[in-house]
Simulated assay, not measured.
Amino acid sequence: MEKRRRKFQGVVNILSFNRHFYSIGLIGLGFVVLSQYLFTYNHSLKWFLVIAFTYGLVAPLVVSAYVYDFSRYYDFNWIDKLNLRESVGSKIVNMNAGFDETSYILKEKFQESNLQVFDFYDEMKHTEQAIKIARKVSSVYPNTNIINTSKIPLEDTCVDFLFLLSAAHEIRSNKEKITFFKECSRVLKNSGKILVVEHLRDVPNFLAFSIGFTHFFSKKTWKNVFEKANLKLKEEIKFTPFVSVFVLENNNKN
Rank of each mutant, 00 (worst) to 15 (best):
R6D: 00
Q9P: 01
N13C: 08
Q36P: 03
Y37C: 01
L38S: 02
T40N: 12
S44H: 08
V50F: 01
Y66K: 02
F76S: 09
K81T: 14
K81A: 09
N83R: 13
L84E: 01
S87R: 12
S90D: 05
S90Y: 00
V93C: 12
T102H: 07
S103M: 01
L106T: 06
F110H: 05
D119Q: 04
F120W: 03
Y121E: 10
H126D: 14
I131S: 00
I131A: 03
I131V: 13
K132L: 13
K132I: 12
S139Q: 10
I146Q: 09
I147W: 13
P153C: 11
T157F: 02
V159C: 07
V159L: 02
D160F: 00
A168V: 13
H169T: 03
R172N: 12
S173L: 08
N174Q: 15
K175T: 14
I178C: 12
F180W: 10
K182R: 13
R186G: 03
V187T: 02
K189D: 11
L195G: 07
E198Q: 15
R201E: 15
V203P: 09
N205L: 00
F206N: 05
F206E: 13
F216S: 10
F216G: 04
F217D: 15
T221L: 05
W222Q: 11
K223I: 04
K234P: 09
S244M: 06
V247M: 07
L248I: 04
K253T: 13
K253Y: 15
N254Y: 00
